[in-house]
Amino acid sequence: MIPALLPSTPPTSPVIPLGPWVEAFIEFLTETLGWFFGGLRAAFGGLYDVVDLALAAPPFWAVIAVVTLLGLYLRGWLFAAGSALGLVLIVLLGQWGNAMDTLALVLVASAIAIIVSVPLGILAARSGTASAVIKPILDFMQTMPAFVYLIPALILFRVGVVPGIVATIIFAMAPGVRMTELGIRGVDKEVVEAAHAFGSSPARILRQIQLPLAMPTILAGINQVIMLSLSMVVIAGMVGAGGLGGQVVASLNRIDVALGFEAGLSVVILAIILDRLTAALGRPRTKLFRRTPAPDAAADAPARAAEPVAA
């Protein structure tokens, strides 16, 4: 009797119009908040232009010199030499301009993601309710296929670099929030209690105790944000963000193995340099603790970046 009431096959088109509802919502956003998204587009676009100019305008050897010096300061001569070689290789492959475009996109998207995610992480660490609300949203943002973000981003921000930046921010910010929360919650409870016992205000405790002590974990989160941003550049290339991502998309369309490999290799080089530089930020550089080489191998950096972060 009951089986008779049920259809013999599951429906192939949606019975609940969830998709159309979201579509209607995006339409509603475009109509009523167009000015807001216009402003956002101008701001992100402007920011990108400034960073891109700063990277692309100077001669390539000057940029290579700066990165090499940074590597020397943060990690040592071996890494500095490796970075210089890698960057020279990008130049010789003829991908320097594209690489700088991509770097600018990654830097802008990462910076915005960090600015948003660290305060969210602090909020989540201080309030159980906030944490309970933020966690499922982060899960959603991180597991929803990244291409899906591109569709509304395209509608709201039109073709260009900005939808790429926005999709990258949404995809990449989760580890920033998670690692900030984890770091602050991991600060010794008795130390925080001691600060309370001496009459410190919560803001002072956050500034003087929780953030400094959580900093290695927060920086590890920031490192992950940057790596996830880099893993999004190819997807951003599909909506016209240009750079190395644009090259990869073009090579895919033309089945151009040579170009695809050259652009892909340039992404790998950028990824390794960025990963190792930002990872070195998280290690204390005082006389007390000697710097130790990073335990992970350089070659798996891009692969690792694409994996969801276990928080």
Partner: peptide
């Protein structure tokens, strides 16, 4: 909370079992 903090600052301090020093 604010007045309570004032009392702690001026009248009561505390020593902890596991020292609870600021490690940094």
């Amino acid at each position: 909370p604010k007045q309570l903090r004032a009392v702690r600052r001026q009248s009561v301090s505390m020593v902890f079992q596991h020292f609870a020093l600021l490690p940094h």
